[in-house]
Amino acid sequence: MITDLWTVVRKEWLEILDQFMRFKRGGWTVLLVIFFLGVFVPLQIGAEWATTTVMFFYWPFLTASMTSTIVSDAVAGERERHTLETLLATRLPDRAILLGKVIAAVLYGYAFALTNVGIGMVTVLVRFGDDATRMTWSRFFLLLGLIGSSSLLVAGLGLLVSLRTATVRQAQQMFGVFFLVATMLPLLAIAIAGAERQAAFSIWIAQQGVEGIGLWACAIASALAALLIGVALWRFQRGTRALED
């Protein structure tokens, strides 16, 4: 199983690298994004960039967005490019195919985030020297956990959407709607909760602190991701649904 997973991950990464190494298309966009997030934003935020609370929100969000572009292509792309049937005619197990695509997408998210975080750290150290605040190891691992769990969650959702659509474009459109609903729902729930509940929630958040909230977010995102990926694995079965959806 591990070998089969690696076979799929390797193939996915070769395709991702091809897509973004073509400077006429995605390559320039990626470089611009890296410059913006890794150089421009840290310089704007200043010496405290590494320890700002907002980092624990926008990195997982950004990573999830990047992961979604990859995972929308996972099955819908294979179907659109007429490679799915041939792939299913090999010995690769259904699980290896799907999980390999999930892992490839999550690794892409990690690579994106860690590259930008690394460049950002170097930027602030070069610019601000000893004045630059350092991220503690606990916060660093928390950030890794948030990036991973948000990527997994998005990968699970994107996979389910990709299984249902015939083209990548449809998958991206449908995923966009789900993503919007998923991000707006919690805010909506808070907004309609009433003043008393909102106040209680605010107190609870203040008591938890950044680390506490981060851990809760990791746990909830991971649990949801496991559920979504489980459903995707159940749906993606040769001979029953995979080719006929």
Partner: peptide
Amino acid sequence: CGALLEHHGLYERL
């Protein structure tokens, strides 16, 4: 089994 199906099934980016 080996198979060449209705579409060639090759990865054109590779």
